[in-house]
């Protein structure tokens, strides 16, 4: 039996706890992270109900994927495989001729992979410096593809802006897929860097992405104005 003092402490703790803290404690308890429930009837009741709810949700049986969908997937696999085989058959006659040139290439010029070097870097400063120094190099299509993906994968906005500054030199090699980044990016400075590239390119092709961006809820007003400005120049 709790002493009056202990009860008062529990009530005080519970009273002072805000909803966020309550929810956090609740999920910790439900997930088994915290073994001991807060000594409070409301908390215990809620935890019991939510646990039951989760159990019921997990019990809902999974619907099977229909066989026609499986067939569709198999067709896509076949298409992907034959695409690869066609491309191999296409280049085979030239392979022998190219092989000797490649051997010379690998003997006299060290194989460089910017991406593999970049993946070894740990700090944001190292990455920034590395990306910026690529302005001195001639980038291949593979390099550009890697950098395009890096914009989606990278968290740091300064690194993304540096990548975009670099890629602005390769506008002609940037395709519609690149501009899909407009749909997923949320940092305003990165969005502006993307829009600056769109502005200099044939942006008629990206009208859909620009419209979607302009209509995005909660978008920074400067970014929206820029998108609208580009859309109006058609």
């Amino acid at each position: 039996m709790q002493s009056i003092k202990e009860v008062k402490e529990t009530i005080k703790k519970f009273w002072n706890m805000n909803e966020d803290q309550f929810d956090k404690e609740m999920m910790d308890y439900i997930d088994g992270v915290s073994k001991k429930a807060i000594d409070n009837e409301h908390f215990k009741e809620e935890a019991k109900e939510l646990r039951q709810l989760l159990s019921d949700l997990k019990d809902i049986p999974l619907k099977k994927v229909e066989t026609n969908i499986d067939e569709e997937f198999k067709r896509r696999i076949v298409k992907k495989t034959s695409k690869k085989q066609r491309s191999v058959r296409r280049i085979w006659p030239y392979f022998a001729a190219a092989a000797s040139i490649l051997i010379v290439f690998f003997i006299f010029i060290r194989d460089r992979s910017f991406e593999s070097d970049y993946q070894k870097l740990k700090t944001n400063t190292d990455k920034l410096g590395f990306i910026y120094n690529l302005n001195q190099e001639q980038l291949s299509s593979n390099d550009i593809n890697w950098l395009k993906n890096e914009i989606k994968n990278e968290n740091n906005p300064n690194i993304k802006v540096t990548i975009l500054d670099l890629l602005s030199n390769y506008e002609s090699k940037l395709d519609k897929e690149f501009f899909n980044a407009l749909e997923v990016e949320t940092t305003p400075t990165v969005l502006m860097a993307l829009l600056n590239i769109v502005e200099n390119s044939n942006h008629v092709e990206y009208e859909e992405e620009l419209l979607a961006l302009s209509e995005r809820k909660g978008l920074d007003i400067t970014v929206r104005q820029k998108a609208d400005e580009i859309l109006s120049i058609q």
Partner: peptide, 11 residues
């Protein structure tokens, strides 16, 4: 001397 500095803002 080896570390970059990057300061970026919009407005």
């Amino acid at each position: 001397k080896n570390k970059p500095v990057s300061l970026i803002t919009m407005n």
